[in-house]
Design a protein around this nucleic acid. Sequence first.
DNA 1: AACTGCCTCAACCGCGGTCCT
DNA 2: AAGGACCGCGGTTGAGGCAGT
Length: 357
Amino acid sequence: MGRSPCCEKVGLKKGPWTPEEDQKLLSYIEEHGHGSWRALPAKAGLQRCGKSCRLRWTNYLRPDIKRGKFSMQEEQTIIQLHALLGNRWSAIATHLPKRTDNEIKNYWNTHLKKQLAKMGIDPVTHKPKSDALASADGHTRSTANLNHMAQWESARLEAEARLVRESKLRSSAPPSPFPPQYLPQPPPPASMPTAASPSVDVLGAWQGEWPKPVVNSQAGSHNIDLESPTSTLSFSENMLPSRIPGMGTANDSTNWKCLKKPGFSLDTAEAFVNAEATSWLTGSCSGGFAAGFTGMLMGNTNKQNSTEGCDDSDIAGGSCVDVEEGEDEAEENKNYWNSIFNLVNSSSPSNSPPAVF
DNA sequence: AACTGCCTCAACCGCGGTCCT
DNA sequence: AAGGACCGCGGTTGAGGCAGT
């Protein structure tokens, strides 16, 4: 089926927006909402195509956009999510809700990619460049496992993104449905023990940055405050559900093989994830699934977990991934992430505490 | 002060997916 | 079911700003 060009009409303006155009677009949307982007320019009196208007709105004029320098925390979130999702900027952007995908993409291309490359880390694979060669012969299994995890997590993130969108549509902000550990936490006092429970900042990405509906006093819109995203979670316990709907149980020595089983699809994963998200939203869930996944992914092999409870019902907690190999791989991942963030931390002027896994 | 090269980021382009008729 | 319209996404471009010479 053919498609007519978006801006086929001659006479439509292109290029940088003028303040007058911005004002027209802004006031129109404030009054009427954007409705059909295609029809908007004519109604708003703009000589632009709808696509251009949409882009200007989503990337620049939207009131809930945070501009300016990316924080250390945001950088880490981007790096971590990029490692899993690749160039899926919109998915990444759902975890940095005040940032646009375009902004994140630009920041990655102009800053983070170079920074990682400078450190000798392949910005595509997120592996040290020397490791990239080694993995070709010796680490295929590890890579395969990570790919399965990424697939799973990808489905989860998409479901989250949908929930974010849906929550934004709700007219009134309910009280926060999240357990306290999912809400932004002030930094712990210096005396607070932190080593006892392994925690990672990446969790801020997985679920600490989950939509935390906060009523914007100005417009009543829902803004998600990421200003103090120090949320960290303990995932020392294997909190994964024993059974994933549609998947049956998995007793594979490598749990994530279940993702390759016939009958399992990303839809299945997403259905499950939605159910999980729903229970989060109703406050009835301990938040274990993602934490367990993250713990596994980020190399949190709790020795205790890795040696017990590996029965049929222990489907995917990361606790039963070939204990010996799993430990090695987990240790590798742990070291990998630590080295990245140590480097990032040391090369950044920010005084944020380094992430420790 | 003038020139040059690099960097940044807003904006565009084209494709794929979804919705609607 | 098919075709068209629309939207959103990711890749790319290029104008403007900045630093170095």
